[in-house]
């Protein structure tokens, strides 16, 4: 079993490398493979390559692919965290209103309703983080009754909070004093990596890695939480603290990623599910493999978004939703769905 997981990890890692190469080689402008190779190697080996190809490969495609990698990995493990938190595999940041909460915070800041507290690059993720935290706390409070989480209430609460947050976003968008930013906001709300640049990568990278490390440290409490809160407490898990940490990680990672790339749904739903089907329930396997598979998935989703219309970009959230919603409905149809 152990060996199988390891080899699965290696396979996924190899696939991730292939995806990164594909993400760099393909795009809305077609470049010949040798031109791409030249541009890639040229920078490293100090050989002069075609300058346009060099810009496309190094300054546009590579940071974009890395942003998709970090976002995909981050959103996938947030899905794992939320599913452990509510003990149900249907939980996901997009469905539970976390992403919409983050976009309320971010658009409030973007449209000039909130003052930049720190620098611009830090304030927007901070506002998004607070929005995500607020949405998740609300949903959690609505769904909780006598110490038990009702899954019906959780999903319905998520739908309601999503709708509420989306309408708040619409309201502040329409009330915005700077109408020229509207188009940019609308595009960003659907999720896109088109603005990815090297200088924007550190913060999402930090959030995704912190989230990954935090989740890796919490693998045992998460396993035990699946048994139920009381059994987990009897087995020595500080249940409340573990749950609060999971909420914090989910809000931090979602908030930061939404602030940079917009709301991209369903990655956290599809990926952990597929990983559990491949490797079983234990989180010490599910967490790292979900990160890898989420990264691969979103790199390809972004590639589809870039390639499907000639010369034109599609918001990547459209692609993930088109893949994710049928998947979600399929899961809902299986009425007795459980972990494992």
């Amino acid at each position: 079993m152990k060996l199988r997981t390891l080899s699965l990890g290696f396979w996924l890692f190899g696939l991730l490398l292939v995806s990164v190469v594909a993400g760099v080689a393909l795009g809305s402008v077609s470049l010949a493979p040798d031109v791409v190779l030249h541009a890639l190697v040229g920078r490293l080996a100090d050989v002069t390559a075609d300058p346009v190809a060099e810009r496309i490969v190094w300054q546009l495609r590579l940071p974009r692919v890395l942003m998709a990698l970090l976002t995909g990995g981050g959103l996938a493990i947030v899905g794992v965290a939320m599913q452990a938190l509510v003990r149900n595999p249907l939980a996901e940041p997009y469905i539970l209103g976390l992403s919409s909460g983050a976009s309320v915070g971010a658009s409030l800041f973007y449209l000039g309703f909130l003052p930049p507290l720190l620098s611009r690059t830090l304030s927007m993720p901070l506002a998004a983080f607070l929005g995500a935290l607020l949405a998740l706390t609300l949903v959690y409070l609505v769904a909780r009754q006598n110490g038990l989480l009702s899954i019906t209430r959780l999903l319905l609460g998520g739908v309601a909070i999503s709708a509420l947050m989306a309408s708040i976003t619409s309201f502040i968008t329409f009330a915005s004093p700077s109408p020229d930013k509207l188009r940019a906001v609308l595009f960003w709300l659907l999720g896109s990596f088109s603005g990815a640049r090297w200088s924007l990568l550190p913060l999402p990278a930090l959030a995704a890695l912190l989230g990954l490390l935090g989740m890796l440290a919490l693998t045992r409490p998460m396993d035990l939480l699946l048994l139920g809160e009381e059994p987990a407490a009897q087995l020595g898990v500080p249940v409340e603290r573990a749950k609060r940490l999971l909420i914090f990680i989910a809000a931090l990672v979602t908030g930061t990623l939404v602030a940079f790339s917009g709301t991209i749904g369903f990655v956290g739903l599809i990926i952990p599910h597929v990983v559990r089907a491949l490797t079983g329930v234990p989180h010490r396997r599910v967490v790292p493999l979900s990160f890898l598979l989420g990264a691969i998935f979103l790199i390809w989703a972004d590639l589809i978004a870039r390639l499907v219309l000639p010369g034109v970009e599609l918001p990547v959230g459209v692609v993930t939703a088109l893949c994710g919603v049928p998947f979600f409905l399929m899961l809902l149809r299986r009425s007795h769905y459980r972990f494992g």
């Binding site: 795009g27 809305s28 402008v29 346009v52 810009r55 496309i56 546009l60 495609r61 595009f187 088109s194 870039r306 219309l309 000639p310 010369g311 034109v312 970009e313």
Partner: peptide, 18 residues
């Protein structure tokens, strides 16, 4: 000549259009 009447261009397309 872009088929879409209101296209959103990609950075790399602009680089290629020069």
């Amino acid at each position: 000549s872009l088929p879409n009447p209101a296209p959103v261009l990609s950075d790399e397309l602009v680089l290629q259009l020069q």
